[in-house]
Each structure stands twice: as structure tokens, then as C-alpha cells.
């Protein structure tokens, strides 16, 4: 089926993909290795192999606490942001929209500005409103930060939606709500899920905005940030590896959903 030039392009791109993936995964593997063996003077001491770090990690209350805070923040922020993204994208594409550019700028700004600015601006305004900093403020900060990504993906998808689909639905007598539920939403599903996954990764790792909004609560990246000065323990490598494994499973679930959602023949 494929002709020769196409096959060559495929092979080249495949080699490139493999190489880049290897490079992308090198830090991951190295962390994973450091979590189970000791490394001295650049040499790996295989005889020190132990899973001890994966156990001792859980008796470290500050790490466990930070991890659970991070999970709460990420889940809430992503849920809120995904919902907002769909609503705002629908609104933006609605014929009666007013001042769409303005709203979009507001959505994109937190993502475009250096995080210090977003963090400080939220800190300054929340302190003026007398809101005390804690998980709530971090959630707000993360929501506005990840909203841009979720919105962008949903909107791109929505814009590519054939008008005819919606029109056909109306012609067949479907209500606006039915059209949304059975036509628009399924069409958007893959973008929403992709957006949520992307948002989750951003939120999980977001440090610089959180620094200013955290008050006396610690998220995982903040803990890592504070530890960076002091030195990472092998426990941290264990933790990071574990987080990666969990996300792997999560992402695999998402991907299998994606595939079903997109099972239109190609």
C-alpha cells in the first residue's frame, strides 16, 4: 500500500520518535533506579538493592500529607476547570456571545504570565479580601492556571465540529439539551478528557503559583521545593516513581477510553 518515499519517511520519523522517547524517559528511569539502589560516585551499587524507601516513605507524615493535599487540589481544580472549559467554550461559540476576545484573554492570561505574577496577583487580592490562604486558594490558583489548557482543547474540538451535526439534530426534533447531551458532549469527550489529563499533570507539578497561595498548607511540589535546598532523599525518588506509576495506570485508563470514544473508522 505504502510507496517507497512514504515508508522512508515513516522509518525516519519512527527512529526519531524512539530516540526522543528514550531521552524523555532517561530521567524517569534514573529516578526509579535511585529509588531502589544506592549510587556512589556515579557508580550504581547493585548489591544495595532494596524496596525499603517505598515503605519508609509512608511513615513520613509530611510527605503523605503533602501528597494528599496535592491530590485534593489537583482533583478539585481539574474538575472545576473542565466544567468551566466546556461552559465557556460553548458560550464562546454561541452566536449571541458578547466580548468573546475579552473572556478568552482572561482565560489564557494565567497560563501566559510568569507564574510568579499570577501567584502574587492572587495573593495580593485575596489578602485584600481577607481570605486566608489554604487549600482553597491553591485550588483557585490551579483552576485559573489549567483552565487555559482545558478550554483551548475543548474549543479547538468544538470549532471542528461540523455544523451539520447540530442542525441535523435539531431537524430531527431534538431539544437543545438533547443535542448537547447526545451530539455535542460525545463529540467533545476526547478533548475534555485529554484536557483533564493535561490539566492534572500541570496541577500536580505546579510550584510557583502555589508558593504564594499555600498559607500553611504544603503540596508535594512545595515540599520538593523546600527539600531541594536540603537534599533529596532516596525516599523522594521512590515517591516520584510511585506517582509516575499511578499516573501511568490513570493515563492508560484514559487512553483506552479515548480509543473507544474515537472509534469512528479512519
Amino acid at each position: 500500500m505504502l510507496n517507497r518515499s512514504e515508508r522512508i519517511a515513516d522509518i525516519l520519523a519512527g527512529v526519531l520518535t524512539t530516540l526522543v522517547l528514550l531521552v524523555l524517559y532517561a530521567p524517569v528511569f534514573i529516578s526509579a533506579i535511585f529509588s531502589v539502589v544506592q549510587v556512589n560516585d556515579g557508580r550504581i551499587m547493585w548489591e544495595t538493592f532494596s524496596l525499603q524507601n517505598y515503605v519508609s516513605m509512608w511513615s513520613n507524615p509530611s510527605v503523605v500529607d503533602a501528597l494528599s493535599n496535592t491530590a485534593i487540589v489537583a482533583a478539585s481544580a481539574v474538575a472545576i476547570a473542565s466544567l468551566l472549559a466546556v461552559l465557556l467554550a460553548l458560550y464562546a461559540e454561541w452566536p449571541g456571545v458578547i466580548f468573546r476576545r475579552g473572556i478568552e484573554i482572561a482565560i489564557y492570561l494565567p497560563f501566559l504570565l510568569p507564574p510568579i505574577v499570577t501567584g502574587l496577583s492572587l495573593l495580593v487580592s485575596s489578602s485584600q479580601l481577607g481570605i486566608s490562604r489554604g487549600l482553597m486558594t491553591i485550588i483557585v490558583g490551579h483552576t485559573v492556571f489549567v483552565l487555559a489548557v482545558a478550554y483551548r482543547l475543548v474549543l479547538t474540538r468544538l470549532q471542528s465540529m461540523p455544523r451539520a451535526l447540530v442542525e441535523a439534530s435539531y431537524d430531527l426534533g431534538a431539544s437543545r439539551l438533547q443535542t448537547f447531551r447526545f451530539i455535542t458532549l460525545p463529540y467533545l469527550a476526547s478533548a475534555i478528557v485529554t484536557g483533564a489529563v493535561l490539566a492534572l499533570t500541570l496541577s500536580f507539578d505546579e510550584t510557583l503559583i502555589s508558593v504564594f497561595l499555600a498559607g500553611d498548607r504544603m503540596t508535594l511540589p512545595l515540599r520538593l521545593w523546600a527539600m531541594m535546598r536540603v537534599g533529596f532523599t532516596p525516599e523522594i525518588n521512590a515517591l516520584v516513581t510511585l506517582v509516575l506509576l499511578v499516573s501511568l495506570v490513570l493515563a492508560a485508563l484514559v487512553a483506552s477510553r479515548l480509543r473507544i470514544g474515537n472509534s469512528n473508522p479512519e
Binding site: L21, L24, P27, V28, T201, L224, V240, V243, S247, A251
Partner: peptide
């Protein structure tokens, strides 16, 4: 291609 994003940015920098 997306998974490496799940790894902490700070830890990645350190490893690199």
C-alpha cells in the same frame, strides 16, 4: 509521549 509530564519538574531537572 505525554507521560513524562507526570514526573516532577524539579526532580527531572536534578536528574538531567
Amino acid at each position: 509521549t505525554v507521560l513524562p509530564l507526570f514526573m516532577s519538574y524539579i526532580v527531572k531537572l536534578y536528574t538531567i
